[in-house]
Simulated scan of single mutants.
Amino acid sequence: MTEQASTESTEGTQTPSGQAPQTVDQLPEWARTTISELRDEAAKYRTSKNSAVDEAKAAVTAEFEAKLAEAEKSKKDVEAERDVAKLDVVKLRAAFGALSGDKAEETLSRADEFAGLIQGSNADEIATHASKLAGLFGTGTTRTPAVDRSPEGGDPALALNGDPLLQSLKSALGIN
């Protein structure tokens, strides 16, 4: 039975002159039909694979573009915050310079040096550390309050060679 099947398959693929066919057109009708069906099936799988690949590419591209847009928006927000902070620093330096008058350059230099010593990663930590540093080193702007040294706190100045001076000393010392 196997000899008969192998004889039939070789007999069906031979041309009348006894040679093997060189093109598909030289094959018998059933072989051409089978080849055509197989080619159609392979094309169907190829197109479904290509469409799946295209869908996956489109999904990945859309996801990437969404993340990229989000990152660009975040970058623009950070840049805007940075620009506002730079402008605030310029305004503060200008106001500080205007308020300190003739000593503007010296005051700004001292303020920059003081700011360089401050540590912290948020506003609360920075404010706390700045207060500690100011307490340790002093601010240099602390002034002692004016004291009225005249007797009895009155305005008229006392003569250094008069009786009122002697009287105020005796009363202060408790001597009668």
Rank of each mutant, 00 (worst) to 15 (best):
L92C: 06
L92D: 01
R93E: 06
R93H: 12
R93L: 14
A94V: 14
A94H: 11
A95L: 15
A95I: 12
F96L: 15
F96Y: 15
F96D: 00
F96H: 10
G97C: 08
A98N: 05
A98C: 00
A98F: 09
A98S: 09
A98P: 00
A98Y: 09
L99T: 01
L99I: 10
L99H: 05
L99Q: 07
S100E: 03
S100N: 05
S100I: 04
S100K: 02
D102V: 12
D102N: 11
D102T: 06
D102Y: 03
K103I: 07
K103M: 10
A104L: 05
A104Q: 06
E105G: 07
E106S: 07
E106T: 08
E106I: 15
E106M: 13
T107M: 13
T107Q: 06
T107F: 14
T107G: 03
T107V: 11
L108F: 02
L108N: 05
L108I: 09
S109H: 09
S109R: 13
S109W: 03
S109M: 09
R110Y: 06
R110P: 00
R110Q: 06
A111C: 13
A111D: 00
A111W: 13
D112G: 02
D112I: 14
D112N: 12
D112H: 11
D112W: 08
E113N: 10
E113D: 15
E113Q: 08
E113F: 12
E113L: 14
F114L: 15
F114D: 02
F114Q: 01
F114E: 04
A115K: 10
A115E: 03
A115R: 13
G116E: 02
G116A: 15
G116S: 08
L117W: 07
I118W: 04
I118Y: 07
I118A: 04
Q119V: 14
Q119P: 00
G120S: 04
G120A: 07
S121Y: 01
N122T: 13
A123Q: 11
A123S: 10
A123F: 11
A123C: 05
A123E: 11
D124Y: 15
D124A: 15
E125L: 11
E125H: 05
I126A: 04
I126M: 06
I126Q: 07
I126W: 03
A127I: 11
T128M: 10
T128F: 03
T128H: 13
T128Y: 06
T128K: 14
H129P: 00
H129R: 08
H129I: 01
H129K: 12
A130R: 05
A130N: 03
S131D: 10
S131N: 07
S131R: 13
S131T: 15
S131Q: 11
K132H: 09
K132R: 05
K132N: 08
K132D: 10
L133Y: 04
A134E: 03
A134V: 02
A134Q: 02
G135L: 13
G135A: 09
G135E: 14
L136S: 06
L136W: 06
L136I: 08
F137Y: 13
F137D: 00
G138W: 05
G138R: 04
T139D: 02
T139M: 03
G140P: 00
G140V: 04
G140Y: 01
G140L: 01
G140D: 09
T141N: 07
T141A: 12
T141H: 11
T142K: 12
T142M: 02
T142R: 09
T142D: 11
